[in-house]
Amino acid sequence: MAGVAVSTTINGDHVEYLCQPDETLLEVLRDRLGLTGAKEGCGTGDCGACSVIVDNRLVCSCLVLGAEAEGRQIETIEGMAHGDQLHPLQQKFLEHAALQCGICTPGFLIAAKDLLAKNPSPTEEEIRFGLAGNLCRCTGYDKIVRAVQDAANVMKGA
């Protein structure tokens, strides 16, 4: 199979790569670009561990083809902090211990960022449904929901 040449923007940086037509964006990020922050938990769009934002839309990168990234703006977990300044969500996840094993954390942070961008003052129920596409097996979600609530308050005050 011939490779597809793709020109895209990832975390604000211009990136070019060749990928196979059937290669997912997740495979490109992890295996070609070394951006291993997005995780493969299922490969079928059920767990959300590979969540990234493509043109302001939250997606499972395992369900997007690498070739589809052409001309898009992609945000991954690696671009969430600004230099040594953690994003308020990252900080609140740490403070609330909203992670145990941490494998789902990048996906949750990306999904929560997308949620708060669209709804800066979500109710608990809105947070729970907003993050229902991301699986966590360790925490029971309690501390994740509290971290997002706390981060939302901080971000509103900022």
């Binding site: 608990e124 129920e125 947070i127 729970r128 449904f129 993050l131 229902a132 596409g133 991301n134 699986l135 966590c136 097996r137 029971g140 979600y141 309690d142 994740i144 929901v145 509290r146």
Partner: peptide, 10 residues
Amino acid sequence: IPVCSDLPMI
């Protein structure tokens, strides 16, 4: 497995 919207605070 349980998702966020399935559970209350514990």
